[in-house]
């Protein structure tokens, strides 16, 4: 019972802090003070108090978009183990549902963007769809890499079988999976080499353009949902990189929080030192990540066969 409470508390309370950490790191690089660490919480609270404006051309799809996408990300967070190897809703095959829940969330964001009838948002949706295609194999292949040693398609079995001696150098496959997952994390959360979260009115943006018409609580859901998505994919990465204890303990919670914070800082560093890729280069970046995950899969299979 306590495990479930802690899991849900982490999942619900922690994500907006990541955005704050990323922004702090970026401002530190730029020599600014930057917004307060808890700014994302304030933003969400402010947006929740506001009313929403709906255009007359939109239908229920537009209203359902933010809710469904937040809901599916939340469910994805419930089937992914966070601070231990056990998740509240874990079952055999949850790995596949996890990937598809992320896909569902993206689908509804895109559907809502298309529903506005605005050409600008349609363009953003088309880009999002185009970049999701090369990002998905990277995610799936990385998940396959972590599942192969366990020979079972569930997170719990995969983390149980994960060897802790990762940095003994014995497991290059996991390293490949970690690099590919990091690329997926940047792409899925519209971070810099792929998309720029700060540009609200530029022709190069992808994610931000799709949510331009949402306001008030709807926009709060979107903001919160994207923070949570970042948190979830980062948690996946933390599990690959750090030895999280099997059963719930303070060590696990602390390791998870530290790992998440470190990844947020790393994203901030990447955003500060790397330039945004040209749109035509983005698929190449993601195909590279997929191929790397494919190499990792080959290594994992080869190791299993040998």
């Amino acid at each position: 019972m306590l495990e479930i409470v802690i899991h849900i508390a982490l999942l619900i309370l922690f994500p907006p802090l990541l955005l704050g950490l990323i922004n702090k790191t970026k401002s530190w690089f730029a020599g600014r003070t930057g917004p307060p660490l808890l700014q994302a919480y304030f933003d969400i609270a402010k947006l929740l108090r506001k009313g929403a404006v709906y255009s007359r051309t939109t239908t229920w799809v537009f209203r359902a978009g933010p809710i469904v996408s937040l809901g599916s990300v939340l469910s994805a967070g419930l089937i992914l183990p966070l601070a231990s190897n056990v998740a509240p809703l874990g079952f055999t095959g949850d790995v596949i549902l996890f990937a598809y829940l992320l896909g569902l969330s993206r689908f509804f964001t895109m559907a809502a963007a298309l529903d506005t009838g605005s050409a600008f948002e349609g363009m953003g949706a088309s880009r999002e769809a185009a970049f999701a295609v090369p990002a998905e194999p990277a995610l799936f292949l990385s998940l396959a890499i972590v599942c192969i040693p366990a020979k079972a398609a569930s997170f719990q079995a995969a983390w149980d079988a994960l060897p802790w001696a990762l940095w003994g150098g014995a497991h290059p496959a996991y390293l490949a999976a970690a690099i590919a997952l990091f690329a997926v994390m940047l792409a899925e959360n519209s971070r810099i080499p792929v998309d720029d979260p700060n540009t609200h009115l530029e022709l190069t943006m992808i994610h931000e353009v799709m949510v331009l018409d949402h306001s008030g609580p709807d926009f709060a859901f979107i903001l919160y949902g994207s923070a949570m998505k970042l948190f979830i994919i980062a948690a996946l990465l933390v599990h690959v990189l750090l030895p999280i204890p099997e059963h719930l303990s303070w060590t696990g919670v602390i390791l998870l929080c530290l790992g998440e914070a470190a990844l947020a800082v790393l994203i901030g560093v990447v955003e500060s030192v790397v330039a945004r890729l040209r749109l035509t280069r983005v698929p190449q970046f993601l195909i590279g990540a997929s191929v790397l995950a494919g190499i990792g899969l080959a290594i994992a299979l080869y190791r299993g066969a040998a």
């Binding site: 003994g168 150098g169 290059p172 390293l175 690099i179 590279g288 790397l292 190499i295 290594i299």
Partner: peptide, 22 residues
């Protein structure tokens, strides 16, 4: 000896990078 595989992975990644970069 365990680190040899990591080095070889680095070689594989640099192969990819050489092919991918413009």
């Amino acid at each position: 000896k365990d680190y040899a595989d990591l080095l070889l992975l680095l070689v594989a990644v640099s192969n990819l990078y050489i092919v991918a970069t413009s």
